[in-house]
């Protein structure tokens, strides 16, 4: 099994190395290429190596593609607290740069399935490498419900930069998802990611960033305590200021 661990880590490292020189990054959007949809559920004792990749193609073909990736380690401390720390990489031209370190904390506020909707709260703190950006905080409520093989998610998020001189502002957004849990290795659905604008001053509809598109999900068990969990989506920008399309992929190695 140690060999399996090593193989996976090697695969992550090679993937990151291969992807980095080919992608270019520029911070034009509130959304990030490697954003993902949060679930309020926490599993005690779960350990995971979490990798995320994403690429945003801008509306204007003369602009650079925006790309990012992250790798982190997450742990379910108890039945209501999951914490994860990860490093994020971004690209500017052909140069790969370490972008930020981020600490995510997720709190499951209700027992799984006790109420019609499971409720959680997210607090994510980021220290950008560019110190002019100060610190970034993302927080908000996470909701999840289900009926038969259908699962529904809706998250309300607030994101802001603090104690810096660049990219200041506090933004309001949401994430939504409908998923059909077809079988363990293959589930499919639709995801939506949106930033509405400043918390107290929303942008007009066409100035908001909204991307919607199909997604696939699955879990492939490797052994008694090991599994690869994946989800991938292809999102279409629905407004003038959204990326034309976004490809995002999350791969977790649970052990």
């Amino acid at each position: 099994m140690k060999k399996l661990h090593f193989s996976f880590l090697k695969w992550v490292a090679v993937s990151a190395a291969l992807i980095s020189p080919q992608l270019m990054y520029a911070a034009q959007y509130i959304s990030e290429p490697s954003d993902y949809l949060y679930s309020p559920r926490v599993e005690e004792g779960e350990r995971e190596i979490d990798t995320k990749f994403g690429m945003q193609n801008p509306k204007n073909s003369q602009d650079n593609k925006l790309s990012g990736a992250s790798i982190g380690f997450g742990y379910g401390v108890n039945s209501w607290w999951f914490t994860e720390i990860y490093g994020k990489n971004s690209w500017d031209g052909n140069t790969s740069e370490f972008d930020a370190i981020e600490w995510e904390n997720k709190f499951q506020l209700t027992e799984t399935g006790k109420y019609p909707v499971d409720l959680g709260f997210l607090i994510e703190l980021e220290r950008p490498q560019n110190r002019a950006e100060g610190y970034e905080a993302k927080y908000g409520f996470l909701l999840q419900s289900e009926w038969a093989k259908w699962q529904f998610n809706l998250n309300l998020l607030i994101k802001g930069h603090y104690l810096g001189t660049e990219n200041q502002g506090t933004y309001l957004g949401y994430q939504g998802q409908v998923k059909y849990r077809y079988q363990p290795t293959l589930e499919f659905g639709v995801q939506a990611y949106s930033w509405l604008g400043q918390l107290n001053n929303w942008d007009p509809n066409q100035q908001q960033e909204t991307s919607v598109g199909p997604a696939v999900f699955g879990k492939i068990k490797l052994g008694k305590k090991e599994a690869i969990v994946y989800n991938m989506s292809y999102l279409f920008g629905t407004t003038a200021t959204s990326p034309n399309n976004t490809i995002r992929l999350q791969l977790e190695y649970e052990f």
Binding site: K114, Y115, P116, V117, L119, L143, L154
Partner: peptide
């Protein structure tokens, strides 16, 4: 809206 959803969701039926 969110407060309403959260409140309504916590009623056991």
């Amino acid at each position: 809206f969110f407060t309403f959803i959260i409140g309504m969701s916590q009623h056991t039926s």
